[in-house]
């Protein structure tokens, strides 16, 4: 059953020449983890930003769980979408501690629920003893885990990840990759993961979508690849 649907999305930057995305479509089922692969500059980050509501597509529709996020008449603001996103550089708030970062998205819960959720998250990422630290006092891998917990805490309907491993070194990447896979499964998260690396995609994702880059005018081949890689 289709849980998330994105159809015929076209997008160009105000001053850009030509479309970055051209009639791009994709679908996800609930609990599915899909990798988006493609060349540098192919529009992968842009795609995630459109789904998140940080950019407005020129045309096309997006809906999740039967709820329209974008079409010609409506636009749901990013904070109202219930979509989580892990940024490439994590964007942890530098003036807040680990615990405060994780609590940030929980302002709609009661105080008791909030603290309970915080404990669950800290346990999930195994950083109970680091709750009072500030982001710059953590290692790259620890920061990555905090970013993950922060996005997951409000229980988003969809999680977006933009090259979550790009700031980690190779050894760390292997262990984190496995861990991330475990955590995604535990939470039964629906997830779109952008990556350069085929191996990353093979380990974590249920299937892979390619954004192909052909020339400049029509950047995107809306090829819908759904070959299972597992």
């Amino acid at each position: 059953m289709t849980y998330f649907e994105l159809s015929d999305i076209s997008f160009r930057f105000a001053e850009g020449k030509g479309d970055v995305l051209h009639n791009f479509s994709m679908r996800l089922n609930k609990g599915e983890v899909v990798g988006v692969l493609g060349q540098s500059g192919g529009g992968k980050s842009t795609l995630l930003r459109i789904i998140a509501g940080l950019e407005v597509p020129n045309s096309g529709n997006i809906s999740i769980n039967g709820r329209t996020l974008v079409d010609r008449k409506q636009f749901v603001l990013p904070e109202k979408r219930g979509i989580g996103m892990i940024f490439q550089d994590y964007a942890l708030f530098p003036h807040l501690t680990v615990a405060q970062n994780i609590l940030f998205g929980l302002h709609r819960l009661s105080r008791k629920e909030r603290l309970q959720r915080l404990e669950e998250m800290l346990e999930l990422i195994q950083l109970q003893d680091f709750r009072k630290r500030f982001p710059h006092e953590l290692s790259g891998g620890q920061q990555q885990r905090v970013a993950f917990a922060r996005s997951l805490a409000p229980e988003p309907e969809l999680l977006l990840m933009d090259e979550p491993f790009s700031s980690l070194d190779a050894d760390l990447k292997h262990s984190i990759r496995e861990e991330l896979k475990r955590m995604l499964r535990t939470a039964n998260m629906t997830c779109i993961l952008v990556t350069h690396d085929k191996e990353d995609a093979a380990v974590i994702c249920d299937r892979v979508v390619h954004i192909a880059n052909i020339g400049h005018a029509l950047n995107i081949n809306p090829k819908f690849v759904s070959n299972s890689t597992r």
């Binding site: 509501g53 940080l54 990013p78 219930g82 996103m85 302002h107 996005s151």
Partner: peptide, 21 residues
């Protein structure tokens, strides 16, 4: 813009984002 975007993604509107982040 990345901190404010992160904040928006966590469900904070423009005003809350401004004061908290």
């Amino acid at each position: 813009n990345r901190y404010s975007e992160a904040s928006r993604m966590l469900g904070a509107g423009m005003t809350r984002t401004f004061f908290k982040v």
